[in-house]
Design a protein around this nucleic acid. Structure first.
Lengths: 162, 162
DNA sequence: GTCCCTATACTCGGATAGCAAGTGTCCGAGTATAGGCGG
DNA sequence: CCGCCTATACTCGGACACTTGCTATCCGAGTATAGGGAC
């Protein structure tokens, strides 16, 4: 199982956006510069976040992105699904309906135990991600991040937002 | 996030092997025939299960695979990790240490909140998969599968095991 | 009839192509702003 | 001095190459069995 690295970028970007004063926007190019990642590629993921209604684009000069909702109302799951797609990781191909022991298709009413076990696990995964909001991540930044880094970040923001 | 379809095949194969009398082996070609999947490709995943110590190969004529441990001592997680690899889905690339706000590397002692949230979710996923054993899946087969299919499967097994 | 030997057929194991999805990049459409011009 | 207009520069959005990993396949190494032959 492999989770694209764009998920990590998107979560960091949302944390940054959630740290800004309400209404302030930050362009994708600045977000890429802040995290030192390819701007062209990050734009793709920001676009996905925009399509999913997680962030809100502001076009034109001095435009950029901002959170579409209060940080406390955006869950980590929202971000992950927006970037990575919302299709389930495990897809049951119903191979029990094939082979020499197969019976009439209409007699398969319940999902098989294997699919249930996998889906239960995925539900647990999603529930865990749904318990954490971008607001929680932002609050955690203030507690656990080295003050020196916070100062540098504030300085950089001040220079960029101008 | 995408989970290879080989995982589904492997779980079904383990369920079948767990349904057999202890010690009896079933060749990979028969497992492929029973599930109507490409034998050459299934062999790859069975090999992975073998390397991980989930199933045990018996070489030579009338050989095949059998579970390496009692079905109740093999968890679904064991099978998933064997086939899909045991590397975590979310890999933190520490992008917080890059960009204009980065500080000295030795000052990043704790993992960032984002990585913690993702890893917690993955732990929940693994815990859920660890709660279900192949023995549970086999027991569930006897309860929820249509008797007609079970009869056909038993007939086929009888003919194949000769 | 019993034992041994050989040939066989069947098993797993790893090395080799093809394809899809994620990764990375680019240029074009659209808009709020800044400056200049006229009144 | 104020308002309007235009040109600009900056923004996002979608369309185009490249690489990694999953999918699919093959052939070779090794072994327990089945049969035949000798005793």
């Amino acid at each position: 199982m492999r989770l694209g690295e764009g998920v990590e970028w998107a979560l960091h970007c949302c944390s940054v956006l959630g740290s800004l004063p309400p209404g302030v926007t930050l362009p994708g190019a600045r977000l890429a510069e802040f995290h030192d990642v390819p701007a062209s590629y990050l734009a793709k993921h920001l676009q996905a976040l925009s399509n999913a209604g997680v962030v809100e684009p502001v076009t034109g000069r001095n435009g950029g992105y901002r959170l579409a909702r209060p940080a406390g109302e955006i869950t980590v799951l929202d971000v992950v699904l927006a970037v990575n797609g919302d299709e389930p990781a495990f897809r049951c191909s119903e191979i029990r309906q094939r082979g020499p022991s197969a019976i009439a298709p209409e007699r398969y009413v319940q999902p098989c135990g294997i699919a249930r076990a996998m889906w239960d696990a995925e539900s647990a995964w999603r529930a865990s991600l749904r318990d954490v909001t971008i607001g929680d991540l932002v609050a955690d930044l203030g507690e656990s991040v080295d003050p020196a880094q916070i100062d540098k970040a504030i300085d950089w923001m001040g220079a960029v937002l101008r």
